[in-house]
């Protein structure tokens, strides 16, 4: 068992200062690359990805699991990153929206479908939709319109409206099938991810 100490209003003073609050070294795989950073035990995975790792594609809307904007793939399955502590992701594999493809000239099927179907306006909710739908299509490559709608029922969008988003789910399924169950894309995406990583490494 591990105990994680929390700043509380009780016995301990609230300690935002790192010199008072102990920091832990947290390492995990994000989008195929190993990352390590120091953070307090109470750091949410969403804040860790955005703050410590600078991956600001993951958005934070409600912080109580309702809006879905912060959804990432945790060992391949969609989870709310606002409802997990970063320490709980120690040693695990996380895919954020950046990991779905970060190259405008080589969009993933779901990204492509969102662009084609006008499934976004402000884009705040979009990272959560993209990760959720990507995982859903892995399990349900040929969804019915009802299944497509149910798949996005856990994600809120406050400006686009859901019709085009549901259309995009169906279009993405079509694009995946055209690309041979996503294989061609997956190969391309991992190449693209490698190139992005190499470029990032170069700029460091």
């Amino acid at each position: 068992m591990t105990t994680t100490s929390f700043s509380s209003t009780g016995a301990e003073p609230f300690a935002a200062d790192a010199s008072i609050e102990p920091l832990l070294s947290i390492s995990l795989r994000v989008n195929g690359a190993q990352h390590s950073a120091m953070a307090p035990a109470r750091r949410l995975l969403s804040d860790f990805l955005r703050g410590e790792l600078g991956l600001t594609g993951t958005h934070v809307g409600c912080e109580h699991g309702v809006c879905g904007a912060c959804t990432v793939l945790f060992d391949g399955e969609p989870v709310r990153s606002c409802l997990m502590f970063a320490v709980s992701a120690q040693g695990h594999d996380v895919t954020t929206v950046e990991g779905l493809g970060n190259d405008p000239s080589h969009l993933s099927p779901v990204q492509q479908a969102f662009a084609e179907c006008h499934a976004l306006q402000c884009g705040f909710c979009t990272p959560g939709f993209l990760t959720t739908i990507t995982a859903f299509l892995e399990q349900h490559p040929d969804p019915t319109p009802d299944e497509a709608r149910e798949c996005v029922s856990g994600n809120l969008c406050r400006c686009t409206g859901y019709q085009n988003i549901v259309k995009a789910v169906l279009r993405a399924a079509e694009l995946r099938r055209e690309a041979g169950a996503g294989e061609a894309w997956a190969a391309g995406a991992s190449e693209a991810a490698k190139a992005t990583r190499a470029a990032e490494e170069g700029t460091r």
Partner: peptide
């Protein structure tokens, strides 16, 4: 997250 409870310790099982 909503600060409705502020336990000093969490025992992660």
């Amino acid at each position: 997250n909503m600060r409705l409870a502020q336990p000093a310790h969490l025992v992660d099982i």
